[in-house]
Design a protein around this nucleic acid. Structure first.
Lengths: 202, 202
DNA sequence: CCATACATACGTACCGGTCAGTAACATTGT
DNA sequence: ACAATGTTACTGACCGGTACGTATGTATGG
C-alpha cells in the first residue's frame, strides 16, 4: 500500500469512499474500451469487486456514472493538451504540432479506441443526455482554444484554421479506431502543418 | 366490400417479400437516427407493422440486419460520391471540393447524425462484427479513392494528402453531429481547398 | 375435376437471459 | 455510534431469438 497523502485526510473531512473510486476506475476502462451502452452495471460492479447498491449509493444512475467517467476523461484530456502547450511557450504553432504528434502516435497503438468524448456523443445522440452534455462542453472549449491559437499564429482567417484543426483532430480520433495501425491518423500532424502553412501565407 | 381480390392478384403478380423491405426501411431510419444498439428488434417490427418472426425469416440476426442497413447505406454513399465525381470529369480537385461542399451543407441540417458507417464502427469496436466489417470495407475503399485522386492532382506526397482529406471528412461527420448548426464542419470544403493548395505547391 | 402435397408468408405466444434500479438487513472499521 | 459497504433477493421492462400454428396459392397426380 503506497504512502497516503495527508492532504486527503486533512482537507476531506469525510474520507473519500473507496468503493466509488474502484467503480469509476473500472467504468472508465470498460466504457472506453467497449462503449457505454455495451457495458451493463452488473459487469462493472463484478469487475470492481463491489455490489450494485454500492454503485447506486455513489452514483444516481448509470447515465450519471457515464458522465462522471467523462468528467474524469475531460480532466486527463486537458492535462495532455496543456502539456503540449507548456512545452512550447508563446509558440502556438509548435504547441499544436506537439499535441497532434502525440495524438498521431497514440492512434497507432493496437487497442486505440478514439476519444471517449467523441464516442459517447455518437452513442448518445439525444440532446441533454448527461454524458453528451459533458462531451459537448469539452468540444466547445476545444474549439475555442484552437481558434484562439490560430489567431495567435496570425492566420488571416483564424476561425477557419481553428475549425480545420478541429476537423483533423476528430478525424484522427475516428480513423485511429477505424483503421488501426498504418491508418490515415498517423498523418495528422503533417497535414496540420501543411494546413497551418497555407493559412498563414494567405 | 367489393372483391378487389382479382385486382390485387393481377397487379401483385410478383410476390416480393413485402415484410423484409419494410423492415429494412424502418431499420435504416431508426438505426441511423438513434443508433443501432439503442434500437431493439421489437421496436423495428412494431414500426414496420410486421412481426418478429418475419424479421428473422429475412435476416439471420439483428447484427446481420444492421449489416444490411449499412450495405444499403454504402450504396447510397457511393452514389453521392460519384455524383460529385461525374460533375467534374478529369478534375479531381473540383470533384473533391464538390463532394465536400455537399457534405458541409448536409452537416448543417438540424437533425444531422453523421455517417452511418462511422457511427456503427464506434458502436461496435469488436473486430469482425458484421456491421463493423461493412463499415471498414467502405472506409478502406474511400481512402484508396482519395489517395488516387490526390495522386491525379499531382501532389508530391499524394498519400499524405489523401489521408488528410479523409481526416477532414471524418472530422466533418463527427463535428456535424456534435456541434450542429454553425459548427466547424461547415468549413470542411474551405480547409480541404487550403490543404490541397499547400500540397500541390510543395 | 378434384384432392393431395408442398412452398411461401405471416401471426400468436413464448423462451431464458439481461437490463437498470431498489428494498431490507447484516457486517465491517474507526 | 456511526457511516460505508456487503448480502440477498427482488422488480418490471426489455433483450434477441424461436417453436409452432395458420392462411393462401400453386403444382401435381388420379
Amino acid at each position: 500500500m503506497p504512502s497516503d497523502n495527508k492532504i486527503e485526510a486533512s482537507i476531506n473531512e469525510a474520507p473519500a469512499p473507496r468503493a466509488a473510486d474502484k467503480i469509476l476506475d473500472v467504468a472508465r476502462d470498460l466504457f472506453y474500451r467497449e462503449g457505454i451502452r455495451a457495458i451493463g452495471v452488473d459487469e462493472i460492479v463484478r469487475r470492481a469487486g463491489v455490489t450494485k447498491p454500492s454503485l447506486y449509493r455513489s452514483f444516481p444512475s448509470k447515465d450519471e456514472l457515464a458522465a462522471s467517467y467523462l468528467r474524469k476523461y475531460d480532466l486527463e484530456f486537458w492535462e495532455r493538451f496543456d502539456e503540449a502547450v507548456d512545452a512550447h511557450p508563446g509558440n502556438p504553432r509548435a504547441q499544436i504540432i506537439a499535441f497532434l504528434t502525440r495524438v498521431g502516435k497514440r492512434t497507432q497503438k493496437p487497442d486505440y479506441r478514439g476519444c471517449g468524448m467523441t464516442n459517447a456523443a455518437v452513442e448518445y445522440p439525444e440532446h441533454g443526455h448527461p454524458a453528451r452534455v459533458v462531451s459537448e462542453t469539452n468540444k466547445v472549449e476545444l474549439r475555442r482554444r484552437l481558434r484562439e491559437m490560430a489567431a495567435a499564429m496570425g492566420a488571416s482567417d483564424s476561425d477557419t484554421l481553428g475549425d480545420g484543426l478541429l476537423l483533423l483532430i476528430e478525424g484522427a480520433y475516428i480513423s485511429g479506431q477505424l483503421f488501426g495501425l498504418g491508418g490515415p491518423a498517423a498523418a495528422v500532424a503533417r497535414n496540420a502543418d501543411l494546413l497551418i502553412e497555407a493559412s498563414l501565407k494567405k
